[in-house]
């Protein structure tokens, strides 16, 4: 890798190598002579990294952080616990004493509100507030393609999960126990009803197609849905 832009300065990626103490060969001479890039290096070093809480032990309950954690890290802790459990093949989630709804379709969506050190599971009709951070757990008896969508009070759909898939549903294996999804959403300021649904289909689909289908309550064949409605005040 060369690491130099057309104008001769370091690319942002090359800057990272330099910050790591291993500048790319082609950038060494430039760094010796360029005041601009040396100033960039100094500025980059000043960035403040938020604290990271200790990771949960493999046997810790998924939905409670073992240590007081900065609020935004709640979800990372959950996911880390789930990942560790998966690696050691130890069932992490407690058996079905958690009040899950079991629907004939074999898909169940749980929505949780991050409340700092803990989280609260939301039920249909529960109030939420602007700025609330919501996370999800999904149980699906069948493998397929999964997406979680929201529809706001103006009937505008938005994607809740997967946010990393470029608008495509995520292929998932069967999950007989609820598993936490690794992405959360934060509520905006607009008051009104928010409908949140999980959709599982036998085949791939995208956000635009499914948003229309959910809005019109016209789910394609081979798809199942579960969801709830929240009141944003």
């Amino acid at each position: 890798m060369n690491g130099l832009r057309e104008d001769g300065h370091l690319t942002d990626l090359a800057l990272e190598y330099a910050l790591d103490g291993a500048p790319l060969d082609a950038t060494r001479a430039h760094l010796d002579t360029c005041g601009v890039c040396r100033a960039r290096l100094e500025a980059a070093r000043d960035i403040e990294l938020p604290a990271m809480p200790e990771l949960a032990a493999p046997t810790a309950p998924v939905l409670q952080t073992p240590e007081p954690a900065n609020r935004p890290w709640m979800w990372a802790v959950w996911l880390a616990a789930a990942a560790v459990a998966a690696l050691v093949a130890v069932p992490l989630l407690r058996p079905a004493d958690d009040g899950l709804r079991v629907k004939g379709a074999g898909l169940s969506l749980q929505v949780y509100r991050d409340e700092g050190e803990t989280s609260a599971r939301l039920k249909d009709g529960d109030p939420i507030a602007p700025g609330d951070r919501l996370g999800f757990r999904v149980r699906n008896r069948d493998a397929g393609y999964l997406m979680v969508l929201g529809i706001d009070s103006a009937d505008a759909p938005y994607l809740c999960y997967p946010q990393h898939g470029g608008g495509s549903a995520e292929e998932v294996g069967e999950s007989p126990r609820p598993r936490p999804l690794p992405e959360a959403i934060r509520m905006d300021d607009t008051p009104g009803t928010e409908r949140i649904v999980a959709v599982l289909c036998e085949g791939p689909f995208d956000f635009e197609t499914m948003a229309d289908a959910v809005s019109e309550d016209d789910l394609p064949a081979g798809c199942t849905m579960d969801g709830l409605t929240l009141e944003k005040r």
């Binding site: 938020p50 935004p72 979800w75 990372a76 996911l79 990393h164 690794p182 992405e183």
Partner: peptide, 14 residues
């Protein structure tokens, strides 16, 4: 940025 930061590390595990 902090919210996105935690998402990226969650993604890194995944």
């Amino acid at each position: 940025a902090p919210d996105v930061l935690h998402e990226v590390f969650a993604r890194a595990i995944e």
